[in-house]
Every structure is written in C-alpha cells, then in structure tokens.
Nucleic acid binder design. Structure first.
Lengths: 340, 340
DNA sequence: CGCTGTTGCGCAAGCGTTTGCGTTCATATT
DNA sequence: AATATGAACGCAAACGCTTGCGCAACAGCG
C-alpha cells in the first residue's frame, strides 16, 4: 500500500540501512547520496512507520500527557501550550483524559503508555502508587501541579504567595468576614487546595481575624460548585462581606449566586478569584494571575531537555513561575453598616 | 527490562503464539490454559508492546484527533467527550493541535499519523488537498464541524436554523438595526461563518430590514476579537441596537466592549451569542445552545462503529444534533428614542 | 609503496508481536 | 477398526524499521 523503506531503497539503488541513515540525518552517508534519497523519498511520499521504528529503536517520539479534565480552561490551556512545544520538536502527544476514578484506575493498572512514550507530562497529581507506576516506565516525568515528588520535574507557582496576596488585599480593604471557596483535595491527592487554605488561615491569623469555619465551603473547582458554595456561605448566620475563591471558575459561580440573590458586587460582597481565566476580564473579576500556558510550555521544554541529554539531571525542586494580583471590579471596601 | 511475550510463554510453559491468542481472547486456546496464562501475565505485569503488535497486525488501536485550538472551550469540550468514548473502547488518542498555518501545513505534508492510527476525527475543516491526504490514509474519517465532505462522516448542527432563531428573536423584540459579529472564514475553509451569515441576511430580508454592511464586523471567534468588533460597530454612524455574535466568546468580548463604553445591556444594546458556553450563564448571555460534548461523543461512536464493522457504510449526509435558543438577560426590546 | 585511518555503504540480526499453516491427539463417524 | 473431523497448540514467517559490524575504496603518511 504505502511505500516502505525498501521501496525507497530500491528506487534509489541503495540499501535500506542507508535510507534509514540518510533520512534521519545520521552520519555515514555522502551528501550526494543523501540528497538523492531525500528526493526519492519525497517523490514516493514515504514516511517511516512509527511502530516499526520505535520497535527497532526503542524511541517512540511520542509523549504521554495525563489530564484530569481536558475541557476545563486551565488544563486545556496547559495542554495546548505543551502540545505546541512537543510537536515543534517532532514529538507526537498521546492524550489521556483521566477525570473519573474509574478511567484513572484503569490507566494506572494497565499502563497503556508502556513502551509507547519517551516521557510523560502529568497534569494530575499521582498518589504514591501511581507515581511508582509512572517511574517504572523508566522515562522522564514532569508535572505542572502539586508539590514536588521524587522523580518528577515540576513547574508551578507559589500557591501560598498567590493566596496571601489575594486575601491580604481583602484584609487591606477592611474586610473582616472573609469567606473561602475551596476545592476538596479529595482522592486526587492534590496539595493545591491545602496550600491555599493554609495561606488563607495564616493571613487571617496575621490580621488578628478569628477563623470562622462557617465561612468555608467546597466548590469542587467548577462553576456550579462555586455557585453552590456561595449559596451556602450566604446562608450563614453572619455571611461574609468578601470571598476568596480558589479558582476563577468557582469565583464566577459565586458571582452567579450573588446575582441570583440580588446582591451587588462589589458593593455587597467582594470576590477575588485565582488563575486569571480568559474570561475573568469579561466579568471584571479581581484575581491572582498565573502564567498558565507558560507552565505547560516550560514543563514540556524541561522534558525535552532531558530527552536530548539523558544524563542531564532533572531540575531540582520546583520551577516557580511568577504570579501577580490583578485588580479589577469585584473588590471594594465593605459597605459600612453600623457597628461591627 | 519489562516482560515480553516470550517471558510469559516460558513461565507458562506454552508458546508465544498461544500467549498472544489467550490474552486477546482469540479462539484456539483451552479455558484452562487461557486462565493460567492470564495469571502468569498478571503476575509478571505483562502488557503487550503496542508498537510490536501494531507492526505485526496493522491495527494500532489509536485514533488521531485533529484540533485547531485545544484551549478553546468548544474544542476542548468536544475533545474531552470524544476521548472518553475512545478510551472506554480501548483506543488511545493521538492529539494534534493544528492552530497555526505552519503546524497545519507540516502535519498534512508529513502526515505523521500514517500507519499510526486506525481512524481520525478532525475538529477542523480540511480543504480539498487536506481531505485527500486524509483519505489517502485509508482509515475512517469523521468531523464535527463544517459541511459534508466525501469520505467523512459528519455530526453537526443546523447552523441556519440556529442563527435564524437567534436573529428572529431580535427582530421579534422590535430591533431593526441588528449587527453581526462573525468570524472570517479565512484560510480555514470553514463553512460555519458563511452559513450563519446567510441565515442572518435571510432573516433580515424576511423582516423587510435593509442590510447595512457597516453593521458587520469580524471577531475572529475570540474574546478579544469580539471586543474589537463591537467597538467597531459602536463607531458606526448609526450603531446597532442589537448584536448577534456567532460565538459566545465573541459575545462576551462584545459585552466587555459595551461595558467599557458605559452602555447597558440589554437596555442600550441587546446581545445574543451562539454555543451556550459554560460561562454564558454566568454573564446571563442569551444564546443558541448546541450540544457540544454530545457532538464529540457521537462522532467518536460513529467512528468506532466503522472500526468494528469495516464494511459498514459510513452514515450518509450529516448527523444533526438539536439546537435551542436559551433566553437569558442580554436581550430586550430596543429603548424607544424618538422616531426611527 | 606499504601501512594506517577514514569514509561510505551493505549485511544481517534483532525489536516484540501476530497469524497462516502444520502437527498432534482425542473424539465422532461410518 | 479405519477414517474423517475438530480442537488445541507450536513453528516460523512476516511486519518495517534500526544498528553493530564488516568490507571495500580511497586518502594521507612516512
């Protein structure tokens, strides 16, 4: 059907090995022969079969990317950027959408990437067993989320600092009843919600504000969850005058809930998010911005570097990307309403 | 390093062929031997090498998915749903992010999916040369966007009907100066913008409204583009009292522009979008909803069906998914301001 | 002019599966 | 009892590449 390396060899009057070497830029082929082979290959529309070459060489030139939810803005954006870096370097990407516990489990027990990828970029946090499974692949590993793990290159942000800047902003505006909409760490072994929560508590303590558990709600990192969580918070005996949401999506859900309750933002309640979602600007959301696409690109680059030079040690610790608080229109001083 | 089929065969005291047949559920193996092999394989942590098996069998059990922009909500959502269907059926997905003309060109000339996939799902519209290239792969093809093409099974929506319901809604509210923010069809050979534009023109004509070219602007299907386009429209000598945006993202950009111009929505200008973006509800956007994830899932299912039964003809024409106008808070009758 | 290096290329052995065909052996058929 | 019929399994040939090694041919060296 499609041309094989032998067809090219025959047509060019050389051996298959020479064709292989010529096309891949390996030494041992004269320039003359090389260009002639290139011409013949082009004319025949020849491309080496990936299965055959990876079987023979052990190199697959493909990267496995593990994502919890492709459809979510954050992950889609990271994936987008990472894919561009990989494909520019000649790598293909195998995508695994591991949102549900079920698919996730199946992935890690069957490990379909075995012998199929040269590296894996995980956008989800593997637990200990899962990390071990990944390490058993014997390929470079990277992640853009969660804390450092042995064997993984991680590029991320300073969750504490980001959260602190957000909550401190609220404190500085004069808020005392500051709620938080978080995502449960749940079975995902995700350290992010925990880090952010700790930072939130620290800022409150620092400001001499007593922590009120009724001011925390779980928003599941989704818009709907954020809406539910905000609704919960509003039902408290003394609702918050400001809310810090651990993601913009949850913040937007909160905005929706507030609108449904006919509460004005920021007059009645201030809201600050996290991420600087593409649409945060549209709704005027104050948020802490992180370079999402850049994180994906950087993680991809670090992976490629390790592939180019297998002895190179993976970067130690965590590569930190800058964050910054973006002030927009959902935060303001609390409305004065009589004595505290 | 990792166990091969021969290791399993040796450990089980059978030949490699028997192992292969046993593990893949092929006939010719007694139940007794089969289960014993399964046990040995599990104990050794054996998984067949994909490269080797696809080299030998010609089947790759992977699907190529072509996406223009993974990070955009629409495509991310389609991809998410499609991936779930594929992986549930035991297929892996190879992702190609073909947003720029450059990567796109490289993809179609080098055709890296050759001999690597059993089918391809294209979320972008290939031009004639590109379709021919894809057809030359000799595998089932599907797409979720654009018109019907020979050799492709396409699942989509009725763009005309969707647009008509949106624009008619504006007409029925009493609007006469109705603008449109579209996406240029450009080099993407995308029929969607054209279909929608035609429907827009038809509704206007039907309502006896003269078409004003100054009321059309290109929003590039992005938020920023939508904002620019809206700004353009507002600069017209007689700006529109209502705008139909061909996507929610552009509609949201328009909303932002309006806010910047201190114009109230829907009092000063009505806005209706297209897609029912996940966040459309947050901003209260009236829009025509289409089942985005379902389209991806359905396309994936149709592809799998063709793979199961290679002789089955691909579904003729286009599979149409339902659409529906979702009324929210960005549309209202035009503000009466003196004689027309 | 012999010797050592170097360069350019072909040979052939893998890489880990799948699969058509052949063999063996037990069972059914006449 | 002899023969046909399957079922269960092994053999070995692909599948299409890569790569270590061998072998010419040729250049440079003293």
């Amino acid at each position: 059907m499609t041309a094989s390396i032998n067809d090219v060899a025959r047509a060019a009057g050389v051996s298959a090995s020479t064709v292989s070497r010529a096309l891949r830029g390996r030494p041992g082929v004269s320039d003359e022969v090389r260009s002639q082979i290139a011409a013949v290959a082009a004319q025949l529309g020849y491309t080496a079969s990936r299965s055959a070459s990876s079987l023979a060489s052990g190199r697959t030139y493909t990267i496995g990317v593990l994502v919890p939810y492709v459809g979510r803005w954050f992950f889609g954006t990271v994936l987008d950027a990472a894919e561009k870096v990989f494909s520019a370097a000649g790598y293909d990407v195998l995508l695994y959408n591991l949102g549900s516990a079920e698919t996730r489990k199946r992935f890690f027990t069957r490990l379909p990437v075995r012998k199929r990828v040269d590296a894996v970029l995980s956008l989800l946090i593997p637990d200990d067993a899962e990390s071990a499974a990944l390490r058993s692949l014997g390929v470079p590993l990277a992640t853009t989320v969660g804390g450092t793990r042995p064997g993984f290159t991680v590029v991320g942000i300073d969750d504490r600092a980001g959260t602190e800047s957000a909550v401190r902003h609220l404190v500085n505006l004069g808020h005392r009843r500051i709620g938080m909409i978080s995502g449960a760490s749940g079975p995902l072994h995700w350290t992010t919600p925990i880090e952010r929560r700790n930072a939130y508590l620290d800022v409150l303590a620092d400001a001499g504000i007593e922590h009120d558990p009724a001011l925390e709600a779980d928003g599941d990192y989704t818009v709907e969850g954020g809406e539910r969580a905000m609704t919960e918070l509003l039902a408290a005996s003394r609702p918050p005058t400001a809310v810090f949401a651990q993601s913009d999506e949850m913040a937007m859900g909160a905005l929706r809930a507030l609108r449904r309750h006919r509460l004005k933002v920021p007059e009645d309640v201030s809201v600050v998010g996290f991420d600087d979602h593409e649409l945060a600007d549209v709704v005027g959301l104050t948020t802490v911005a992180q370079p999402v696409a850049e994180q994906g690109a950087e993680a991809a680059r670090l992976l490629l570097r390790q592939l180019d030079d297998p002895d190179a040690a993976p970067p130690a610790g965590q590569v930190q990307m800058p964050i910054r608080l973006v002030l927009r229109e959902t935060t303001a001083p609390p409305r004065p309403r009589g004595p505290q």
